[in-house]
Design a protein around this nucleic acid. Structure first.
Lengths: 223, 223
DNA sequence: ACCTGAACACCGTTCAAGT
DNA sequence: ACCTGAACACCGTTCAAGT
């Protein structure tokens, strides 16, 4: 009964074999992002890199926004993975927040891509679910755990956005940045910033991140 | 000596009177932003709104990025204004963070505009200086005060980014958003998120913001 | 001094037609 | 079923020429 076994495959039995696949396209898009940056990531350049016509991309992604959302989602792969055992909830929260920061930093303009898409895929959901779970296990009621998880994610996103902006500004030869710093050092106008020059010009972003994250964790004051 | 008093003005005595001025252009750009959103804010549309040719804009802003930076800077006008007297440092920090959130929310896509420009104008510098000042007055050493100020700004930026994204998603008829929520309610895959459905779907962004900000403030544990 | 007009080198998106 | 080829309606940016 049915067609003979000469049909090419039971899952995709007829028509031309696909020249491109969505997962591969996302991987190529992330490579292009790393090489050229977000502003240079166009549908046309992606099509060229995939050796395909531009229109073909719209068979897999309805809009460029959808492509970016798929990229943002892909970035979080693995962030919700198993946590080291025998650790305190504070260490687990620190681990999870660190994973998110690392995931966004791993790709050029990663934070901008993530911030620009309201990502709601399984990787993002799993990540948030895991973070809320750690906070509930620490003794927080559901609402407090959820709001705290969002606060941690929002802080991490904002921090990483600035960290990447600062990094790109630094290795692009900081033109107006030094002028602004000079203005900041004006003791009359910005007395506090001028005292803080060392901290402001510091590139120890890990310490800056740890400071903010510790504030959030300490603020919970869980017994 | 010199030209007679018939010359039009001592400051701009010769040539054609300017048809546009940078401050007016920024104000118009912010109005366009509110009306059409960031994606529709193009140099060409701004030129049309100003009744000027596109090229003329490049006399005042070297690039579109410069325009966006000027808009971001303008948004923070007044945020560093005098603080109410006779208040605790906690109340002052809350006031300042609330002003930043309000400033970013005041314009459509305001957070996205601010996040996309590494703003370093006087309004931004004054704001940060004021926040650092309040934290130092509360007893924090300079480095801790500065890092805390950045943490507060980064959290506020991240929170506001998500708040505006959620708001635009809500009044654009949330298409895939309900699907994602449905997935989140899958108790097998996201046990914690499904318990937190009420908090996740809440539109009480002010409470969400206050929660995160209080965490940061409590975390300081200043005597 | 300031603006116009026109061009250059691109974009995202759509869709008939091919195989 | 999947892709090509070509078009549509735009972009940001530059620059000679006008007044």
């Amino acid at each position: 009964m049915g067609t003979p076994s000469t049909s090419p495959s039971p899952q995709r039995p007829r028509g031309r074999p696909p020249k491109m696949a969505a997962p591969g396209a996302v991987a190529t898009a992330l490579r292009l992002l790393d090489e050229e940056g977000l502003d240079a990531l166009t549908m046309r350049r992606l099509a060229t890199a995939l050796d395909v016509q531009v229109g073909t991309l719209y068979r897999h992604f309805a809009t460029k926004q959808d492509l970016l959302a798929a990229m943002a989602e892909e970035m979080l792969a693995g962030c919700a993975g198993p946590l080291p055992e025998g650790t305190t909830w504070q260490e687990q929260v620190t681990e999870l927040a660190g994973r998110l920061r690392a995931a966004l930093l791993r790709h050029r303009d990663g934070a901008r891509v993530y911030a620009g898409t309201h990502a709601v895929g399984p990787n993002t959901l799993s990540y948030t679910d895991t973070l809320v779970g750690v906070l509930r296990a620490a003794g927080l009621p559901t609402q407090a755990a959820t709001r705290t998880a969002f606060a941690i994610v929002h802080f991490t996103l904002g921090h990483t956005l600035e960290e990447q902006a600062a990094a790109e500004l630094i290795d692009s030869g900081l033109p107006a940045a030094l002028d602004a710093l000079h203005a900041a050092l004006d003791r009359r106008r910005y007395p506090n910033l001028s005292d803080a020059a060392a901290t402001i010009t510091s590139t120890d972003f890990a310490a800056q991140f740890a400071h903010g994250l510790n504030l959030l964790i300490n603020g919970l004051a869980v017994r």
